[in-house]
Design a protein around this nucleic acid. Structure first.
Length: 554
DNA sequence: AGGGTTTGCCAC
DNA sequence: AAACGTGGCAAACCCT
């Protein structure tokens, strides 16, 4: 059963059941309650059909309502446009409807601030769909939805795109829920870590003591004033002391034997921590004082952007949630009486390559807990070299040791290497490639001019590396989406705020009451099994997740 | 003053 | 060892 829904902007909305034929339109004055009731009315919950989870679902979640599944028209539209190499085009409901009626297509609306940073009451803002004023929005939604189902059915791999649309939509739900619940983050622990490394917090605008001291010592070592934050000044300083460098990147400086180098490297490391994730970050992104919205204290609320990356990985807006430095992970702590369950899909991309290419030898290695260790046995070398060889194949690296390693890989894993080499050739020719479920790489724009002009060969190669990596990275992102979708379904009933609280590409973190830890771990294992079979049937490839129950993930 | 670009580093 | 994919972000830099 599918139910189409649009909000009326006053807390209510219109619903319409979609069986073989659309049922009667029903207006409700309390949309959250109506959705909650419909969610539990049947043995199987409905699939909600709406313009965009991003627009409707945060309000529902704030009202304490969670839904099991949905069809997100905007995310689905973007997938379908992408399939036909039309990546840049607008994908909101209004745009899809306009294309259907051969009307001028409106641009997508600029996205409002994320749920993590705002806290408005649940009002179900009427319309971010860019439909023309006066349009029957429910009818337009039903029409676009039917059209999307038809367009999916026409594809050569309809079943795969149907799955992709479903898990992309589920990702939208999971993202809103995670943004709302937030990652438990202890400001006091964060402050301890910063103070330990940087010294006590300075007045705003000043350098922390440890950094200030390093600046002094760097200047003394060079023999004149240097602002290490300025690459230009560091370049001059290095030339001045007789060690000219082409750039001030850490790995370049590392090769230079001079007493100032360790000081500079230490400064870079700590300065990065201070500017990116220092006290200012803590105050901006972790709620420490209660407000009117009732959000929990000590939570980091990243604003996830589903479908924000061409490969299908998620992006985030603000707060840099996908780049939390390892040194700060200790600030992620379970509440008293609760635990964190962390599950990390190790070596995801080579496992994905083994599964999609059907390479028996690589699949055999990917049936093991440590794929690279097995590779090393095959290659007859050490694990580290085997890993470099594999990564070279997936990223298109050619420098350094890569060439001989790649030759070995090609001999041992011919089908796997064919798979990525073929994707690379397609990209070098300006073509498009697809993930396992049909997410499609964007066609390069202005290709003829790009290739003809100066640096054309270099750019051809670069695009080949992009498509080479795309077929693996995009499929890995699909694996993660199916896992998230499965996990949402399999988790036991949980109290408010419990569940998945963090997700980065191949790692999920759940925050649950301690007495639910065991069930949660079982659900993670079950979700992995379901994901593997859903995507790759009876492939021998395994995707070890090794869920760990902890108080902190540092 | 403010916007756009460059540099460099963080994550996977 | 060092330039190989996807990104976000901050500070310096460069321009209007």
């Amino acid at each position: 059963m599918r139910i189409a829904v649009v909000a009326d902007g006053e807390g209510g909305g219109w619903l319409q059941e979609l069986d073989e034929a659309p049922g009667p339109v029903r207006h409700v004055s309390d949309l959250a309650t109506a959705v909650r009731e419909a969610e539990h009315a049947r043995s199987e919950p409905p699939r909600w059909v709406w313009s965009a989870s991003e627009d409707l679902y945060p309000d529902l979640v704030r009202a304490g309502v969670r839904v099991s599944r949905c069809h997100d028209a905007a995310l689905t539209e973007a997938l379908l446009l992408g399939y036909h190499a039309r990546h840049g085009e607008a994908s909101s409901l209004g745009a899809a409807w306009a294309r259907l009626h051969r009307l001028p297509v409106p641009d997508d609306p600029a996205r409002p601030l994320g749920e993590g940073t705002t806290a408005q009451p649940a009002l179900f803002e009427a319309d971010r769909s860019t439909l023309p004023p006066g349009t029957d929005r429910l009818a337009a939604l039903v029409e676009v939805h039917a059209d999307q189902l038809r367009r999916i059915a026409e594809l050569p791999d309809a079943g795969r795109m149907r799955l992709l649309a479903a898990v992309e939509s589920a990702g939208g739900l999971a993202a809103a829920e995670m943004s709302h619940d937030g990652l438990p983050w202890r400001p006091d622990v964060h402050d301890e870590i910063l103070t330990e490394l940087l010294g006590p917090r300075p007045p705003s605008g000043q350098r922390p003591p440890v950094l200030a001291d390093l600046v002094t010592r760097i200047s003394e070592s060079v023999g004149r004033e240097v602002n290490p934050d300025s690459p230009a000044q560091v370049l001059k300083a290095m030339a001045w002391i007789g060690h000219p460098v082409a750039s001030t990147r850490s790995w370049v400086l590392e090769g230079i034997d001079h007493p100032v180098v360790p000081l500079l490297l230490r400064y870079k490391e700590l300065s990065r921590l201070h500017s990116a994730n220092g006290w200012t970050w803590l105050e901006s992104w972790v709620r420490q004082r209660s407000g009117p919205d009732g959000q929990r204290l000590g939570r980091f609320h990243p604003d996830y952007v589903v479908g924000g990356v061409v490969s299908g990985r998620w992006a985030t807006r603000g707060g840099g949630a996908l780049q939390i430095p390892r040194s700060l992970r200790g600030a992620v702590r379970a509440d008293p009486g609760w635990v964190l369950v962390r599950a990390d899909a190790g070596q995801l991309e080579p496992r994905v390559l083994a599964a999609v290419s059907g390479d028996d030898a690589l699949a055999a290695a990917a049936a093991e807990e440590d794929l690279y260790a097995r590779l090393a046995v095959h290659v007859g070398g050490d694990r580290e070299r085997a890993k470099i060889g594999m990564l070279s194949a997936m990223y298109g690296q050619t420098s350094g040791d890569a060439a001989p390693l790649l030759a070995t890989m090609r001999r041992l894993y011919p089908r796997a290497l064919d798979y990525v080499d073929s994707a690379a050739r397609t990209g070098e020719g300006g073509g498009i490639v697809r993930s396992w479920l049909g997410r499609t790489s964007p066609a390069p724009d202005g290709w003829a001019a790009t290739v003809a002009g100066p640096g054309g060969e270099r750019r051809r190669r670069a695009h080949g590396r992009f498509t080479r990596n795309f077929v693996v990275q995009a499929t890995a992102a699909e694996w993660a989406l199916v896992l998230l979708a499965s996990l949402r379904q399999l988790l036991p009933d949980m109290p408010e705020g419990a569940g998945i609280v963090f997700f980065v590409h191949d790692e999920v973190v759940l925050h649950v009451p301690a007495d639910l830890a065991e069930e949660t771990v079982r659900a993670v294992a079950e979700a992995e099994a379901r994901t593997r079979v859903t995507l790759f049937g009876n492939s021998p490839v395994r995707f070890p997740l090794a869920p760990v129950v902890t108080q902190n993930i540092g």
